[in-house]
């Protein structure tokens, strides 16, 4: 079951809207940072982008996954829904680029739609109702519906294990960057597959090991809006690549562009 779901979710035909996102790669290239040879430079970009993504978005995926996985029936959905919305608000508060927020929320709602239109069981089910209510909250504008949150919920609802969900999250980020690179004609499709098989794999393994336990709890559980909290969240989520962040923010300034982010 687990493996079959994994195959399904890794399918590049999955309608998530990720093909319009380059996560800053297009802007990075336009600004003259993609040096020759392209393969080495591209790999460096993917490594740095994954590093930051694993430290910032992956903790939200993990926490959303854990939250849903911990639910036992019968479920009162108000508590879990509120907790998911706090997590969503947290990701909104650390995602300070308009371009990144736009890309994340458009893919997030696509994930929820994918679930309700394709994966939801035909009869009523508490987890399916949770996803429905989350989708409703996003539609109403009560919560932004960011990609890492929705992705964590989806993988958990489909009973993918946390470890596999974490690997898949980073794998898809890398694959999406490579597919953007191919569309930008930066590298060819064969080289892209070669990088994915040989070079990306150890990077993913290392990052999942490093970041699997990073949690948002230090921010969400400690009432940090009240002054006087002395604890420093040294090991919580963080952005680790300011250069990538600046260039991704500048996406919309490009004279011509083929991606949305």
């Amino acid at each position: 079951m687990d493996e079959y779901v994994l195959l399904l979710l890794a399918d590049s035909n999955l309608p998530t809207g990720s093909f319009v996102a380059s996560s800053g790669l297009e802007s990075y290239n336009t600004h003259g940072f993609l040096a020759r040879p392209h393969s080495a430079s591209l790999l460096a970009f993917i490594h740095d982008s994954l590093h930051s993504y694993a430290h910032s978005a992956l903790p939200v995926v993990s926490d959303a996954h854990r939250l849903v996985a911990a639910l036992t029936e019968p479920v009162d959905l108000r508590g879990p829904l509120a907790a998911l919305m706090s997590l969503d608000a947290f990701y909104e508060s650390i995602t300070l680029s308009r371009v990144a927020r736009r890309a994340s929320t458009s893919q997030g709602v696509a994930i929820l739609t994918l679930y309700s239109k394709a994966f939801a069981p035909p009869d009523t089910h508490p987890l399916a109702s949770l996803v429905d209510q989350l989708k409703l909250a996003v539609r109403r504008g009560d919560t932004p519906g960011h990609l890492p949150l929705c992705w964590g919920v989806l993988t958990s609802v489909l009973h993918l294990s946390l470890d596999r969900a974490q690997h898949l999250t980073l794998f898809l980020h890398a694959r999406s960057l490579l597919s953007a690179a191919v569309r930008m004609n930066t590298i060819g499709p064969y080289l892209a597959q070669q990088l994915l098989l040989r070079d990306i794999r150890p990077i993913l393994d290392t990052l999942v090991t490093q970041c699997a336990t990073i949690s948002t709890a230090v921010f969400i559980d400690s009432n940090r809006d009240r002054p006087g909290t002395d604890e420093l969240p040294l090991n919580g989520p963080a952005n680790t690549w300011p250069l990538g962040e600046i260039l991704a923010m500048r996406h919309d300034l490009q004279h011509s562009r083929i991606f949305n982010s």
Binding site: H31, G32, S97, I246, M249, H255
Partner: peptide
């Protein structure tokens, strides 16, 4: 407007609204 260049600029900066315009963030390098 950014046109394609082949080498990084001396200075690069970006601006974005945060929290529906309740604030702005500027990053520079």
């Amino acid at each position: 407007t950014v046109f394609k260049t082949t080498s990084p600029a001396r200075m690069v900066w970006a601006l974005s609204p945060i929290s529906e315009g309740k604030g702005y963030i500027l990053r520079a390098a």
